[in-house]
Design a protein around this nucleic acid. Structure first.
Length: 813
RNA sequence: GCCGAGAUGGCGGAAUCGGCAGACGCGUCGGUCUCAAAAACCGAUGUCCGCAAGGACGUGCGGGUUCGACUCCCGCUCUCGGCACCA
């Protein structure tokens, strides 16, 4: 595309000038001591991966727009920025390019910082944080120790997700369809000793407090988090195996206990070996071996057939003393519940399928409201109807029966009510160099010993090589007994770094603690948090967890870190999400060179609702480009706009003023509610109205100047450079960025005339321009006077009349 | 399979409460200017019938409620996102 050459407005001439002024004057540096109401406006800090394109920019433009808007409305805005700078891509790039991950990362930060400035995006850079620098990660280590001291960090052997390509373990949340979230390779299961955070201890609060976010977080995100935590209420029940072992099962449907016709243990269940009979031992061992070898590919095959093997053993159903067979099957997971189930094929789809395949008994114990089915052809899973073949509980509805049977089990000492979660503890250790070192020491005699606070930070060694292969680094003396010991060589998941950065911003230079609680409470909670939906579970759940732990530690008051959450959609081009790898990104540098930052910003806001994905069309940016040239001309040289007596309605100050105040109302509402696309439309309409005013020979007096000022001010959050220039050129002292938001005058915006819609039998027949405040009789009279209406009525009198004052009248025949 | 969101012109999208469907743009067509082109500016632009006036149809599909439905209800289809043997 050729560089657009137009008279007057040359964005490339004015944009750098104003960027310099804003920076010099520290326009967006937040004042901790201000007595204006605070507004903490946060955008998700990025991973510095290289050049920014317009897909990245959408987030930052929204953030900047919000900052500028609320500043103009008189709030003390805190809008900090930083870098989520530890992580695998830096290591991968470093391996490829032979550079140290730190150099690669810091280089990218410099590029991104320049590009943000070039887009006119302002931040309070005095609070910048970079998670890979010791002055940040020393506090991450401090917080790790706080979790350790509060019993929330522990180390244990566990089956974990191992990515063979990235050579590290992954959190459950980082495994997507059995694949690594970073490199997309299949994940393996391994038994390893790893560090965990006890997020499950906070499961109830993380779930229940989602209620505090109703209406201010996208419903989608709240639902996703609730499902991820996955709380279920049920009972644990002991079944006695015939060899004397107790097998504890978990069920959410104790009401179906009389329908249990067999039991199933997970292949990894510790009792498998002990209950299996000699006759079945070989078959069971073969099955368990196969299940162990089974890869994620087989796990994921969609139409997965049930497999299993009989142990030869039996157990006794505690409610009715029945003897039922014990099976092994991999559809029962060791990681959930107790790793063992009672199978109720009549009322569970999976058990039904298994029973059908292996010819096991299917028994009906819940009759639907319409009565017992007799021969079940599918599992009846609804909780409606009544119990049958269930001894003393017959006739009860499933709901009450759940409570009654659970109570009975507890009284008999055979079971108890239990709450279970899908959420697992957070695996936080990674076998990578480029992360925050875990400040712990392994001592043969003392065990796990925390590094004393006075010795923090535990710094990464300068040389880039795996920590476990760096004896010079890991060999230390035990802080407790002084004997030779070994440093922990794992580093922390980068999601820990990003779980508290918003707190660090509130006192980024604090030297004694991770953050100053007083300042944290001055700014927290975040009033507006903006970022991508891809963080709906991971980052947002972990940050909420940290906030609650730090609340409990007395370091910050709010229970939830983010009051309002906005998740913006992704920008696509040629049908694909803009990405370096897809080669379809619109580079920010190119855009600024061609169309200018302001036009790019407007286009990005105009492209569609900000919460939706948007398709970037190269030609469509012409609209915002033309619009800005038109604004320039309207403000600085309205006399060059031709009078066009043929088309223009006679102009009046009253009409111009009305449309100006209507625009103030609309744009203010739209900025508040994140409807940026319609805010652009409203501004274009105001410009159209002003142009019509001039073309119609309207006066260029006081009302005109009010419109010009409003146009500049309303446009400023979206297109800061051109408006700053116009503000100066129209003779205002001070910065447009510092100016007060225009006041909306309801009287001026009120329309004295209305368009009455006239319908006959619900069909539009005429529109009448009338003065407002019409009675039904008056409206009816006016409607009947219309020639078009007369034709439609054809002499018939209306039987009914529906009148919506000042809007519509419907004559029904 | 379950949960959530969505489907409106050639394209992006708009439509506070059930009351003018298609705002605002892009694109396209026509015009002005120009030797010409680009840019700029002006006008037209949902579909069909009609010279026109005007009329009919039209918000994924099929029903329903209503004087009146893009909007509410019932039943589908398709698209996107999340979860996925969680007992």
């Amino acid at each position: 595309m050729a560089v657009l050459k137009r008279r007057g407005y040359v964005p490339q001439d004015i944009e750098p000038k104003w960027q310099k002024v804003w920076a010099e004057r520290g326009v967006l540096v937040a004042d901790d001591a201000s007595d204006r109401p605070k507004y903490y406006n946060l955008v998700m800090f990025p991973y510095p991966s290289g050049e920014l394109h317009m897909g990245h920019m959408r987030n930052y433009v929204i953030g900047d727009l919000v900052s500028r808007f609320y500043r103009m409305r008189g709030l003390e805005v805190l809008s900090p920025f930083g870098w989520d700078a530890f992580g695998l891509p830096a290591e991968n790039a470093a391996i490829k390019a032979g550079r140290h991950p730190r150099d690669w990362t810091l280089g990218n930060i410099a590029i991104a910082k320049r590009q943000l400035a070039m887009m006119g995006v302002l931040y309070d850079w005095s609070r910048e944080v970079t998670t890979c620098l010791p002055d940040y990660y020393r506090w991450t280590q401090e917080l790790f120790l706080l979790f350790w001291e509060r019993g929330l960090a522990y180390r244990r052997m566990a089956p974990v997700n191992w990515c063979p390509f990235d050579k590290t373990v992954l959190a459950n949340e980082q495994v997507i369809n059995g694949r690594c979230w970073r490199c997309d390779n299949l994940v393996e299961k391994k038994d390893l000793e790893q560090w965990f955070f006890k997020i499950t201890e906070y499961a109830d609060r993380l779930l229940d407090d989602l209620e505090l976010l109703r209406g201010t977080w996208p419903e989608k995100v709240r639902v996703m988090q609730a499902n991820w935590i996955g709380r279920s209420h049920g009972a644990e029940v002991d079944f006695a195996a015939e060899n004397g072992e107790q097998i504890r099962i978990y069920t959410t449907r104790p009401d179906t206990l009389f329908g249990a016709t067999f039991m199933v243990l997970a292949p990894e269940h510790p009792l498998v070996e002990r209950v299996t009979t000699d006759a079945q031992r070989d078959a069971v061992r073969a099955y368990v071996e196969r299940a162990r070898r089974e890869t994620e590919i087989e796990r994921l095959s969609t139409e997965r057939e049930k497999t299993g093997v009989f142990t030869g053993a039996h157990a006794i159903n505690p409610v009715n003393g029945e003897r039922i067979p014990i099976w092994i099957a991999d559809y029962v997971l060791m990681g959930y519940g107790t790793g063992a189930i009672m199978a109720v094929p009549g009322h569970d789809e999976r058990d039904f399928e298994f029973a059908k395949k292996f010819g096991l008994e299917i028994r009906e114990v819940i009759a639907p409201p319409s009565g017992p089915v007799g021969e079940l052809t599918a599992a009846y899973v609804e909780k409606e109807g009544s119990l049958v073949s269930s001894g003393q509980f017959d006739g009860m509805a499933p709901g009450p029966a759940i409570a009654a049977i659970t109570t009975w089990l507890a009284e008999q000492g055979k079971g108890e009510a239990v709450t279970r979660y899908r959420l697992r503890d957070w695996l936080v250790s990674r076998q990578r160099y480029w992360g925050c070192p875990i400040p712990m020491v392994h001592c043969e005699s003392c065990g796990l010993v925390p590094v004393p606070h006075s010795e923090l930070p535990v710094e990464l060694p300068p040389e880039y090589k795996p920590l476990a292969e760096n004896p010079e680094w890991y060999t230390v003396t035990c802080p407790s007994c002084g004997r030779p010991a070994r440093r922990e060589t794992d580093t922390l998941d980068t999601f820990i770094d990003s779980s508290w950065y918003f707190l660090r911003y509130t006192s980024a230079h604090e030297r004694e603690r991770p953050f100053d609680p007083e300042l944290a409470n001055r700014w927290m909670a975040v009033d507006q948090y903006t970022g991508g939906v891809e963080h709906a579970i991971l980052h947002l759940l972990y940050s909420r967890f940290f906030e609650k732990v730090l609340h409990d530690a007395g370091m910050v008051e709010p229970l939830e870190p983010f009051l309002r959450l906005f998740t913006q959609g992704m920008v696509k081009r040629n049908g694909q999400v803009m990405a370096k790898s897809a080669g379809n990104g619109v580079a920010a540098d190119d855009l600024v060179k061609r169309e200018g930052a302001d036009a790019g910003r407007i286009y990005e806001m105009f492209i569609g609702p900000p919460e939706d994905d948007a398709e970037w069309t190269d030609s469509a940016i012409a609209g915002p480009v033309r619009f800005l040239h038109r604004v320039w001309r309207l403000v600085l040289e309205p006399e060059t706009i031709e009078h066009s007596s043929a088309t223009a309605a006679p102009a009046s100050d009253e009409v111009l003023r009305r449309r100006t105040h209507q625009a103030i109302r609309k744009v203010t509402d739209d900025y508040t509610s994140f409807a940026f696309n319609t805010a652009v439309s409203a501004l274009m309409e105001l410009a159209n109205a002003m142009q019509e005013h001039v073309a119609g020979g309207g006066a260029l007096g006081e009302v005109w100047r009010e419109s010009v000022d409003a146009l500049i001010l309303l446009l400023h959050p979206m297109a800061p450079h051109v408006t700053e220039e116009l503000w100066e050129r129209t003779g205002h002292a001070g910065l447009c960025a510092d100016a007060a938001w225009p006041e909306y005058d309801a009287t001026a915006a009120a329309d004295p005339t209305i368009t009455l819609i006239v319908q006959v039998d619900g069909k539009l027949r005429d529109r009448l321009e009338l003065s407002a405040g019409l009675t039904e009789a008056g409206a009816r009279e006016a409607a009947l006077r219309s020639e078009k209406v007369g034709r439609a009525l054809a002499g018939r009198p209306p039987r009914q009349v529906h009148y919506i004052p000042d809007r519509l009248i419907n004559l029904v025949l």
